[in-house]
Design a protein around this nucleic acid. Structure first.
Lengths: 134, 134
DNA sequence: CTGCGTGCAAATGGTTTGCATCCAC
DNA sequence: GTGGATGCAAACCATTTGCACGCAG
């Protein structure tokens, strides 16, 4: 797989900007948050476009769409699978600092499944939420 | 934590049946699927009630609400956190057979988070979907 | 009896989509 | 110039919620 241009995808300003903004942050913004971020640069972009591109980019494996426990999906500019920390109170998602490479796919082909990828999510309460009473 | 009756919750036939049905299967049904299952026993139950009870039960820790990659949430009658296998094609979720106890919470308090729980989900293609062409 | 839980249906909210226009190639 | 990408708004769909009634304790 080389970079991208082998089929027919065009690199629109919107797509470019969405990817750039997503890579710029260490947080794992929801589509809405990406929308807000990108809007500062392209005020006329639409939410639909943000969704379409986020979908496109994650389909390409350039970004990660995090399923997770919350209602909204979150997106990660770093496509390599790595463990996340999710706050069960405010919903924010951080990366784990210490890599903790999980026993990487120790059971490939487990139960007949193929092409396994592994998502790990630790769920807890983040310092900020733990601070302000219950 | 004893069983349940310490506050004021009543054990309705609906709640009881939902829990029983959920424990009966090894699959990880969506709310809709639970609705269908329970309807065979209580034909007049409403989807809203299924959602309310699933929510109640997961809040109590009696069942597990799986966030996961799909659109709909899935529920697991086994409340102990254990790794899952999700098919990226059909969306079905299986339990991993070999326990593979993950490096259990090796980083408790990581980054200031407290009360960590760990969700692990392997994403791949299940045998059935791998079989039938693309 | 009492009030928690239910059935029903309307409301919500995130995400997707149809369509005419726009612009990257 | 041409078809993929966009903006807008309506459509979707899973989930939630308000309300009056029903039933478990």
């Amino acid at each position: 797989m080389n970079n991208a241009e082998h089929k027919g995808e065009r690199l629109s300003r919107q797509r470019e900007t969405i990817l750039a903004e997503l890579r710029k942050v260490t947080s794992h913004p929801t589509a809405d948050e990406v929308y807000v971020m990108v809007r500062k640069i392209l005020p006329r972009i639409s939410l639909g476009t943000v969704y379409r591109n986020l979908d496109f980019l994650s389909g390409k494996g350039v970004v990660l769409r995090l399923g997770g426990a919350g209602t909204q999906k979150r997106f990660d500019g770093n496509p390599a699978a790595h463990p996340h920390l999710r706050c069960s109170v405010c919903g924010r998602v951080d990366d784990l600092e210490h890599p903790l490479d999980l026993p990487d796919l120790p059971l490939k082909q487990s139960m007949g499944y193929s092409a396994l990828r592994c998502d790990v999510e630790f769920v807890g309460i983040c310092p900020m939420c733990a601070g302000k009473d219950s």
